[in-house]
Design a protein around this nucleic acid. Structure first.
Lengths: 250, 250
DNA sequence: CGGCACTTTGATCGTGGTCAATAAGTGTGG
DNA sequence: CCACACTTATTGACCACGATCAAAGTGCCG
């Protein structure tokens, strides 16, 4: 058993990562981070800026995959609907992430805004062309995709092996980390999703999610500040659950 | 509810896909498919061919990610070990797939051979260099990564929403499809994994996997031919479970 | 204030986990 | 070739975690 693995919580969330370079807001994170001027301009002019209301969909499952989206502001989630009506959420996406970039002719997932979202909608063919024109851009896409894959694999491990409380803890920790990556610090974080949304992300019912949060609150690990805001009181306790160290204590 | 979604089973398996081009065996599928002569030669000479016994590991969780592997022959699996000893499997990988290609300094997953495996081990820096030299190669990597992501998302949906029998059915169907992609046809397929392995892939115990297979056998959906070989008798029944149409019938 | 969506909590049930015993393969050496 | 050890698979009995069903409770917006 190779014990010393750098354990990390499930990441439903942060695929794009911050980069040290400064400049305009949109460039600090993810997609726009290390691109040269030319590529940046090419992408901006090839795409079309759009905004979406909360719960509005960027694209639906089954839609022809004619466009990809680059998320600038806000939070979105990717969902999959099963033939019998069950719905699963595959992850959350934030500023800097790319959505709907697929090799298949139709979107296999739907993308839905959770908050106000501003995104750049770009034609797939034009994007492919841009990728072959700008090696840096293509490299950047490969890196984003690799990270997104790693995050999805973490999520998969969590759904395969974690208990309900571990999953909820992992969700909270990765939500926090996503916000810290984007400059939101302090013990208070906002939770832009309902209990039902969290349930769909974690393969749990909304009641089970609620019970887990209540249990954390009862143990003094967190406190509710308004409905969609939480204050973390014992991050270590949550983090320990979130990486899959079984709780021996109470 | 956009009903007409092209439903597909969970794919723990096939990321590389066959390509129409002929030529040497290694080129028919996945990694080596559409590469130009030059890139192909460059990769072959930069990497080092290695073979692995069943249950031998290509790399371990926590190892420095100094090399990536291109799988030529055989089946491998990617696993993650939790601090408390629980183990999860993230997927199976076959000929043409790339393993251990990560942006992080260490491998977060382990890769283990299930059958005899022949793979090409290549230094990460040299690979990065090759990628920037050969746009076709980089494009190919991006495509593989995108497919692997889609497969992992399917897997995730299955672990989030499927019952035990649905998961096992989905596993069998995707195993079959992976073999058909690689030229193995006929109603008989081999299952290069133990019940415990399947359990780790599906977030189930080995007993539950065994019960599901027994149930399928009892219903006349399949028959065991030797230990690691099954004959599919009613593929439609399995496929229906595998895409998440709830079984009304017994 | 009413209406509505979301959350919390409780009671009960069922799927799948756990523990255990047996059976069936698989490989090794006598 | 069989005996033996060992791994893997099957099946059963029981139990627990989380789903389901149900009913308050809470916050938000018109």
């Amino acid at each position: 058993m190779t014990a010393l693995n750098a354990a990390r919580p499930l990441i439903i969330a942060t695929c794009a990562r911050p980069s040290p370079c400064g400049g305009c807001e949109a460039r600090k994170v993810g997609f726009c981070a290390p691109l040269d001027e030319e590529a940046l301009h090419a992408v901006a002019s090839a795409g079309e800026r759009r905004t979406f209301e909360p719960r509005q969909s960027l694209f639906n499952q089954g839609d022809p995959a004619t466009h990809a989206f680059i998320l600038h502001e806000g939070t979105a989630r990717l969902t999959h609907l099963l033939p019998d009506g069950r719905q699963a959420a595959v992850g959350l996406r934030f500023g800097g992430d790319v959505l709907g970039f697929t090799t298949e002719p139709t979107h296999h997932l739907a993308a839905e805004a959770l908050t106000m979202v501003s995104a750049c909608r770009i034609d797939r063919h034009r994007l492919d062309h841009l990728l072959s024109q700008h090696p840096l851009l293509e490299r950047h896409f490969l890196e984003l995709c690799t990270r997104e894959l790693a995050a999805t694999q973490d999520h998969l491990v969590a759904l395969g092996q974690f208990t309900a409380e571990e999953r909820v803890a992992a969700f909270l920790i990765s939500l926090i980390e996503a916000q810290e990556c984007r400059g939101q610090h302090g013990p208070t974080y906002d939770v832009p999703v309902t209990r039902a949304d969290v349930g769909e992300l974690l393969g749990l019912t909304l009641e089970t999610v609620s019970r887990a949060v209540s249990a954390f609150r009862r143990r003094g690990w967190l406190r509710a500040r308004g409905v969609h805001e939480i204050e973390i009181l014992d991050r270590n306790a949550l983090a320990s659950l979130a990486i899959g160290e079984r709780q021996e204590d109470q």
